[in-house]
């Protein structure tokens, strides 16, 4: 019994990590119809920033979040203006190719700047856990779970309560109509993209104490976060949280019942089923999003 409790706990906590990574992706996906293949690379950059803040300044990764949010927001602004804005009016194929190019560029840039060393933040509490002898809650996993929920709530407040949030929503529903109503769609897109990157920046900070950091670390999370986003419904922030938890639980339970080598195959199987049976995701809002 205890072992099953532990497996559920593991699944939920791992799900928190998947959810956290996917929030920024679903925002960019849902608003702009941009499949950001470089999403994992922005995660990687944030992990490196947190690593250097820790090594050079002794800053705790969780404290670093305060600085990571504005830094990654600006990174998002600059990247959007320089690469995606000029081609946003063209077909999706162009933005896909551009984000793939960005992915390769950022990976190789990281390799040039920081070489292929596998780095790791060595902090005391990284592997500590609370709970009973046989039901353990990893401290860093609890933290990333809480941060995932916090980020989702924060983002939903921004989207529903602020002017820019409302213009993001309006633009995502119908770009032309929003433009006619006086919404500056270019500015809206830029900010939505930057918000998405800032969010994945938060994820990077939360993941830095858990995972090793190296130039291709982003690709490890890429596939899983796409699955989560499609499962939760494109552009659906709470959906990303629930999608993350589902994938986390599938990962944990199937990994225990079957040889662990199969678990990726299992959740990709679920992904295919969802695409076939419910292509808008379990919580998709029909025609929402993508007014391009």
């Amino acid at each position: 019994m205890e072992i099953w409790m532990q497996i559920l706990v593991n699944g939920i906590l791992t799900g928190g990590i998947f959810a956290l990574i996917s929030i920024g992706l679903t925002l960019i996906f849902g608003v702009m119809n941009i499949i950001n293949f470089a999403h994992g690379e922005f995660l990687m950059i944030s992990m490196y920033l947190v690593y250097w803040m820790n090594v050079k300044m002794g800053m705790d990764p969780y404290v670093a979040i305060i600085f990571i949010i504005p830094i990654m927001f600006v990174v998002g602004l600059v990247v959007y203006k320089a690469t995606l804005n000029p081609i946003i009016e063209r077909s999706e194929l162009f933005t896909i190719l551009m984000t793939v190019a960005l992915m390769i560029l950022l990976q190789n840039l990281a390799l040039m700047l920081w070489n292929a060393d596998i780095r790791s933040i060595n902090i005391d509490y990284a592997a500590s856990a609370i709970g009973t002898e046989n039901i353990r809650f990893g401290i860093t996993k609890i933290a990333s779970f809480a941060i995932a929920i916090g980020t989702a709530i924060g983002l939903m407040i921004i989207l529903s309560r602020t002017w820019i949030g409302k213009s993001i929503k309006a633009t995502s529903q119908n770009r032309t109509a929003a433009k006619l109503m006086g919404v500056d769609t270019i500015r809206t897109y830029t900010i939505a993209f930057a918000l998405g990157i800032a969010t994945v920046g938060i994820a990077g900070a939360a993941l830095a104490p858990i995972f090793s950091i190296y130039p291709t670390v982003g690709t490890q999370f890429g596939t899983a976060s796409f699955v989560v986003v499609v499962l939760g419904g494109l552009g659906n922030v709470p959906g990303a949280i629930i999608g993350g938890l589902i994938i986390g639980l599938i990962d944990s339970i199937s990994g225990f019942l079957l040889p662990v080598g199969f678990k990726e195959a299992i959740y990709l199987g679920v992904f295919l089923l969802v695409l076939l049976l419910k292509p808008n995701g379990l919580f998709g809002q029909g025609a929402a999003g993508g007014g391009r």
Partner: peptide
């Protein structure tokens, strides 16, 4: 005895089997 993918982001289920 068991194999896993080096690309995995979670090995908790493998650890649970070792423990069991």
């Amino acid at each position: 005895t068991e194999s896993y993918s080096a690309k995995t982001t979670d090995l908790s289920s493998l650890v649970m089997k070792l423990k069991q």
